[in-house]
C-alpha cells in the first residue's frame, strides 16, 4: 500500500466511521453505508484539507469509488 493509499484509507475510515480493513480498492457508496451526500462532502473536504488541494465540481462527478478518488488526488498533486 502506498502512502497515498494509506492516508486515503485513514481519512475514509474516520469520515465513514468504519474500520480501515473494510476499505478496499473498489469501495464505493454501494458498500459503505455512511457514504451518503453528507458523507461524500465530508470526505471531499477532509481530502482537500489533508492534501491541500481543491476539487472542481466536475472532479466530484468522477470520484465514485476509492480507486477513482486516488487517481483524482494523484492528478491534483501532480498538477
Amino acid at each position: 500500500m502506498t502512502k497515498l493509499e494509506e492516508k486515503l484509507t485513514q481519512i475514509m475510515s474516520l469520515v465513514f466511521e468504519i474500520p480501515e480493513d473494510r476499505i478496499k480498492e473498489d469501495s464505493s457508496p454501494d458498500d459503505i453505508e455512511n457514504w451518503d451526500s453528507i458523507g461524500a462532502i465530508n470526505l471531499i473536504t477532509a481530502i482537500e484539507e489533508e492534501f491541500d488541494i481543491e476539487f472542481d465540481d466536475e472532479d466530484l462527478l468522477e470520484m465514485l469509488n476509492f480507486q477513482l478518488i486516488k487517481l483524482k488526488v494523484k492528478e491534483k498533486l501532480n498538477a
Binding site: N34, D36, S37, D57, E58, L61
Partner: peptide, 27 residues
C-alpha cells in the same frame, strides 16, 4: 441514501441555464 449524490450530479452538468434551490435545509 448512499446513492443520493447521484441525483445531484446531473444538475452540475447542465450548462444552458441557472440551477437554483430555494428550500435547502441545513444538510
Amino acid at each position: 441514501r448512499n446513492h443520493s449524490m447521484k441525483l445531484l450530479m446531473p444538475y452540475l452538468k447542465l450548462k444552458d441555464g441557472l440551477v437554483t434551490n430555494f428550500s435547502a435545509n441545513r444538510k
